[in-house]
């Protein structure tokens, strides 16, 4: 897997909450048995008109976002289906970083990303950053004000800097295991196979119908 250390790129915005994985990669593209070739189909139903031409009303198609690699969106991104194809499509369409806000709702903090989607990003060298709703609102404003705005995400430092005329930087949290996996491009299977002896020992004494025996 490609490690993620530091990435600088153009920031694009998608002003929509609860973007589901069916929207990120529609079902017809899930028939492929390959891991590649999904990039041009990302956001297919929004990106293209029924005749197959580019939908210029879709915000990510705007010329000002040409060459973008950092996506900023709203909360609960990647909800719904577990399809890892959604992350493959985003990565293969050139995105390395996705940013979404957590949301405070009646005393609970709802995360920026759906659980399975977030798991899948880590396994594909993509960095998912959660910021507060207020900070993400500021980022949307910066992107609107500055065509071609770039940002630098530094995973080791857990910081993202937006290179506006008055630069803004935000620190972010990330789970230690996910950070290490991304920084080193680790394959989880290799990692787990180090514990092969533990698994064998476990299996030798384990009865799933009476596990406490």
């Amino acid at each position: 897997m490609t490690p993620f250390t530091v990435h600088t790129g153009i920031v694009a915005t998608l002003d929509k909450a609860n973007v589901d994985t069916d929207a990120i990669i529609p079902k017809q593209f899930l028939k492929s048995i390959k891991r590649t070739g999904y990039g041009p189909s990302a956001f297919f139903d929004w990106r293209y008109l029924p005749d197959g031409t580019i939908n210029e009303d879709f915000e990510l198609n705007h010329p000002r976002f040409k060459g973008r690699s950092i996506l900023v969106t709203r909360n609960n991104f990647g909800c719904g289906s577990s399809r890892e194809h959604a992350v493959w499509a985003l990565v293969q369409d050139g995105y390395r970083v996705v940013i979404a806000p957590w949301k405070e709702m009646e005393g609970n903090r709802l995360p920026g990303f759906a659980d399975i989607f977030k798991n899948n990003t880590t396994k594909n060298g993509m960095l998912a950053i959660e910021l507060s709703e207020a900070d993400v609102n500021d980022v949307f404003d910066m992107v609107a004000a500055h065509t071609g705005l770039t940002a630098t995400a530094d995973l080791q430092a857990q910081r993202i800097i937006f290179h506006a005329p008055s630069p803004r930087s935000f620190d972010f949290e990330i789970y230690a295991g996910a950070k290490e996996q991304l920084l080193n491009g680790l394959d989880n299977i290799d990692l787990t196979l180090q514990y092969e002896a533990d698994i064998s020992r476990f299996e030798a004494q384990y009865d799933p119908l009476d596990p406490n025996s």
């Binding site: 899948n120 396994k123 295991g177």
Partner: peptide
């Protein structure tokens, strides 16, 4: 619970998952 394809491969090979 549901898992992604990388995790499907992980379970096939190790019969385990790394979970928080």
């Amino acid at each position: 619970f549901g898992i992604g394809t990388s995790e499907v491969e992980h379970v096939l090979v190790t019969q385990t998952l790394i979970q928080k």
